[in-house]
Amino acid sequence: MEKYLEILNYAIYGAAILLLLIGLYGALTKKSLIKIVLGLSIMDSGVHLLMISIGYLKNGTAPIFSPGHENELAKMVDPVPQALVLTAIVIGFGVTAVALALVIRLYKHHNTLRIDEIKNLKW
């Protein structure tokens, strides 16, 4: 089991960080505004996964004292990152919605989604 955990250590963190990096890559290189927003939301997903995995406890269980689990306090995973991720997801959604609304507006004005053509404000 220890070995598995060792593997999982690399696997989960690696996957989460890869998600983050892929999202960041998309946001930094793709020209389409929607792609950029998409990249940002993928990046957020990666961070959320990372946060949840930090709170995980080996053989743990969900931090809910439902009937039959009232006394598993020591086994329970860390609830704090979960609460934080909850907040972060909702906030991320709000930001994404605003971003997409801005994208729609930008498309209306510029008739393109390419970010390198939407640069009236410079220097």
């Binding site: 505004l33 929607i34 927003v37 998409l38 939301s41 997903s45 959320h48 949840i52 995995s53 709170g55 995980y56 406890l57 743990g60 269980t61 969900a62 931090p63 809910i64 995973v77 979960q82 609460a83 991720v85 909850l86 997801i89 909702v90 959604f93 994404t96 919605a97 997409l100 994208v103 729609i104 498309y107 989604l113």
Partner: peptide, 30 residues
């Protein structure tokens, strides 16, 4: 990872709402 709350939130917001507003955005653009 034993985080049902977050799973629920991710299912509700990530799967449904985010996808949907993205699609609406695509509808309004290209």
């Amino acid at each position: 990872l034993q985080a049902p709350d977050v799973a629920l939130t991710e299912a509700a917001i990530g799967v449904a709402l985010t996808t949907i507003i993205f699609i609406i955005a695509i509808r309004n653009t290209v």
